[in-house]
Amino acid sequence: MSSPLSSTKTAAALRTSARVSAELLLILVAAAVALWVLGRMWSVVWPLIVGLFLTTLTWPLARFLRRHGWWPALAASVVTVFALLVGAGIVALIAVPVADQSGELADRVVAGIDKLREWAAGPPLNIGDDQITGALDTATDRLQDSVGSVVTTAVTGVSTVVNGVVTAVLALFLMFFFLKDGPRFLPWLTRQLPGRLATDIPEVASRSWATLGAFVRSQAFVGLLDAVFIGLGLWILGVPLVLPLAVLTFVCAFVPIVGALFAGFVAVVIALVSNGPMDALLVLGIIVVVQQLEGNVFQPMIQSRGLGLHAAVVLLAVTLGGSLAGVVGSLLAVPVAAVLAVVWNYLREQLVEEPREPEPEDLPEGSPAPS
């Protein structure tokens, strides 16, 4: 027969479970409140995050200039203007080719739709032109009925563009001040905090900054390699919009896994519409080869120490971030997960018990005493 349960141990286990559950609930409530406050302050927080990302990319150049005798303000000004020129050049690389080739691409899209209609009219689908025309008429009627929502969407788009410009301007100003006064931040923070916090928070901030900088710079370099190789393949195959697609590949590299899939999908669709299915398959093959080289050769070489995150954690973080905050969430998911890992590792270091040296009375007889 099995022994009866101990009422004392059962009650103690229930009390422990209740206490742990209450503590977890308090942590979740605190996290929810922090996220709510973050959402209310997002108009300020988002430019701050973008400014930090830009600073991690441009800090090596600013540090190089400062080490060679440049004044901090002058070095920060030169690097900020350089970053602004690079950003304007990237926008021009996207906008000008799209504007030049938009008419040709639209014609090829129409031709592709006509081919699709011809294919749908034959076996095995055997969809008649009257059915296709009826579907198009229905779609047109729905579009006309939703003119108000289309206008609202257009107004929202204009508002989004204005907010994007304001965010970019604020991020550039913040980047300038970070580049100019960044090295003085941690000493200032140490003087402002009391007791143990004066050591812990600056240390966590320093580690988080190093991790964030390693992530952003390595992703930028890997994205540049992807853009060069994929863009070269698209150029050899004669796919239109090579420069915009290459720039899109570079930008999407900052969203691990999901960004590469999205950029590859866009490139394959453009190749399918413009050059046909054979070139689309070739483009798909080029993208797969480049992604394999990135995952197995480029990234292990560049991210020698890595972020300490498993690929499954990265994928889950990107998925969760995208479901919570869309594109912005996908972009910030991996850096946030990496910073949380840094915080957890530091807390674990502080909570690990130091090995206790044995006292003399604990040693066997005849053993030498510890020095």
Rank of each mutant, 00 (worst) to 15 (best):
P4N: 08
S6H: 08
K9C: 04
K9T: 08
T10F: 10
L14S: 07
T16I: 09
R19C: 02
S21N: 07
A22C: 00
E23L: 11
L24C: 06
L25V: 11
V33W: 08
W42C: 07
L54F: 02
L54C: 05
T56K: 09
T56N: 05
T56E: 11
T58L: 06
L65T: 01
L65D: 10
R67M: 15
G69E: 04
G69V: 01
L74N: 08
A75V: 08
T80A: 12
L84A: 09
L84P: 00
V86G: 05
L93C: 11
V96H: 13
V98T: 14
V98E: 06
A99H: 08
D100L: 13
Q101M: 01
Q101D: 07
G103M: 02
L105R: 05
G112A: 12
E118Q: 13
P123F: 05
N126Q: 09
G128S: 14
G134S: 14
D137K: 11
R142C: 04
V147Y: 04
G148E: 06
T152S: 09
V155G: 10
G157F: 13
S159A: 08
T160F: 15
V161F: 12
V161Q: 01
V162G: 01
N163I: 06
V166A: 15
L170S: 10
A171I: 04
F176S: 09
L186R: 12
W188H: 01
R191D: 10
L193S: 03
P194H: 11
L197N: 03
L197A: 14
A198Y: 02
A205M: 07
S206C: 00
T211A: 13
V216I: 04
A220N: 08
G223I: 14
G223R: 12
L224E: 09
L225V: 15
L225Q: 10
V228R: 10
F229H: 00
L232C: 11
W235C: 02
L237N: 02
G238Y: 05
P244K: 10
A246D: 09
A246T: 08
T249Q: 12
V251G: 01
C252E: 02
F254Y: 12
P256T: 01
A260V: 11
A260P: 03
F262E: 06
F262W: 15
A263F: 12
G264T: 11
F265Q: 05
A267H: 10
V269F: 08
V269D: 01
I270R: 12
N275Q: 15
D279R: 13
A280T: 03
A280I: 07
L281I: 15
L284T: 04
Q292V: 02
E294P: 03
G295L: 02
M301I: 09
Q303N: 13
R305C: 00
R305N: 11
G306L: 04
G306P: 00
L307G: 13
L309M: 09
A312R: 04
V313D: 13
L316E: 00
T319C: 05
S323Q: 03
L324Q: 08
V327S: 07
L331K: 10
A337D: 04
L340H: 07
A341W: 07
L347G: 02
L351C: 10
E353T: 02
E357D: 03
P358C: 06
P358Q: 03
P360T: 01
E361L: 05
D362T: 07
A369Q: 14
